[in-house]
Design a binder for these strands. Sequence first.
DNA 1: TGCCCGTGCTAAGACGATTTAGCAAGCACG
DNA 2: CGTGCTTGCTAAATCGTCTTAGCACGGGCA
Lengths: 354, 354
Amino acid sequence: MGRRRVTLADVASAAGVSPTTASLVLSGRGEELRISATVQQRVKDVAADLGYRPNILSVGLRKGSGLALGFVSDTVATSLLAGDMIKGALEAAHERGLMLFIGETEGDPAVERRLIDALLDRQVDGVILASMFTQTRPLPEGLDHAPAVLLNALADMPRPRIPSVVPDELEAGRAAARLLVEAGHREIHLIGAGPGPDDTPPGTVAGRERLQGILEVLGEAGLRPASGHVHPDWLPPFGWETTRRILDSGRRGTAIITFNDRLAFGAYQAIHEAGLTIPGDVSIVSFDDAPLADWLRPGLTTFAIPHYELGRRSVELVLEAISGRDEAGARGSVHRVPMPLRERASVAPPRPAR
Amino acid sequence: MGRRRVTLADVASAAGVSPTTASLVLSGRGEELRISATVQQRVKDVAADLGYRPNILSVGLRKGSGLALGFVSDTVATSLLAGDMIKGALEAAHERGLMLFIGETEGDPAVERRLIDALLDRQVDGVILASMFTQTRPLPEGLDHAPAVLLNALADMPRPRIPSVVPDELEAGRAAARLLVEAGHREIHLIGAGPGPDDTPPGTVAGRERLQGILEVLGEAGLRPASGHVHPDWLPPFGWETTRRILDSGRRGTAIITFNDRLAFGAYQAIHEAGLTIPGDVSIVSFDDAPLADWLRPGLTTFAIPHYELGRRSVELVLEAISGRDEAGARGSVHRVPMPLRERASVAPPRPAR
DNA sequence: TGCCCGTGCTAAGACGATTTAGCAAGCACG
DNA sequence: CGTGCTTGCTAAATCGTCTTAGCACGGGCA
């Protein structure tokens, strides 16, 4: 109970040496500074005996580092979508003996500013700025004192000073289109963005890049989207309503690409309510791999946002920045993490023409 | 760039006073210690001018406190379900100028142990032990050095030393049953637990208490569940399969209580696939209020787990414990937060008997 | 004149570690 | 015998802040 913590001084006096010696031994610099094996062993034994654990605040004070990173997000911790991003960052940090301070800004730049200050006051060694949705964003001031990384976001400036980690949306877009084209589909509807390359919800990188990849592959196959439907909120109601309109129109097509899984959920509802089946009548490909995707019947084929991997990479990048190993060009580089395909049961070749 | 931080000594010398005086003034003890108004003003002006911000590591070292709390969860940050719990804790902490260290154990006691140690090394002032699902759990050792609170969990011992915050599942169970009974339902199926009071998945407090509340109200109305179906994983497939069996059985009933929203999702699928309607043929009440509940068609009537509020309360409780205001009986007390009803469209009176 | 007291401020020592500079003893060498 | 190098360890400063003890000054009182 309430026993005072064991300090370095306690260890030193119990081992009959000076605090200096104890410090040297315990920080592994014993050899280098020629402390005799006898003494080294004695100090280590005593430290273990007493259950000595260094006070990290003190170490931080001395070394000017807090042995911690800051993770500032808009709504990642909260939004039930990207928890794995935090998990990846958390694990990568813990593996290196670092802790993670997490903060949420709700997208408010003033809150962000305050949070960053609070983190710097605590001597964090680096800061990760995470976004829920891939987006371009301005860099906050005050980040000159610690290395930083953008997670799931790009800086809205020509030559940013800090690196970014983002999913490879472009390639995922290509792969999604390829999947359908290779299955034989020619009439493909787009829900969430399109049909033109500039028909994207404002501010979303994901939408723009996915669309670009899709159009690229479609174009190579000599196709254009059967239709495209932009909407700022990618939620089930819009997916439901749009799908109904598509089914009611004369030109139902054979496949739909939804820009996220929640739109796909809405599409499922509309298709089932119309008495049609997936993938028999309509194939669906989507993006995100939310838990939902696995619960839908039939299972939704979708390209996963590699949240866990993104989180891990982000801390690796801050650490590189901290140790100064990010020379020259790496400064503002963009790291793209592949989006793996989760193949389930919502894609099939179109029904043979009657 | 890279300008060294402004320290207290800088402020003091710029203001022409001793560090002591500067410290006194800036920590608001100027009056008490009779520093002249002139000097006080001068120090404050200089501090503001220089943009002085205290080094919290140093303060912590001196005061033996880290101005931070630890939030250790099994899979809360990660699991896409209880993000609001973190948000509530985060906001309550930030309001008081505290930061939150977050860690995830994945349910591994060894990891938990290490994490708690790491937090204590960093001189956190208190620790919140959070669970994804309400459960009883043993208390980890090593928590003697800092106040702690159980969030969404109960200690599995007779007289625990630390308080708990949990949703009021019992009352929610009663309210759910009451809702259906008052709408006129007599044949009510239970999916997730029941029909007997001991038919609950192992280790879940939520299941036991919800069931108890339901049976209590049903009993008062002279009813018993039409059927009950226990399962350790409350996921859509079990909801789907069980609902199918219920519909196929001779005794379809008029209402279902699902023990969480994902089970309800499965029930929706089965009901729709059977060509029946909600709430015309079957009413459904559920628990959790996951985002899903709002996306289902028709909207799912459900009792929300007050994640945000739980998170906030937990921080308030640790802080009470820290400041020692939790006298006597409060030590191991259990705080129950009400589960608000989210009334949507999945409940209606049963069809009049033909 | 001498003593006491209030006013307004400062010196100096923590807090717990790291690190630089350096001391003492033993030995070799010229 | 003096000098210089190794070996093995320690004293003391340092990080930035808080806090205890106390100093210097001036006025009131006996």
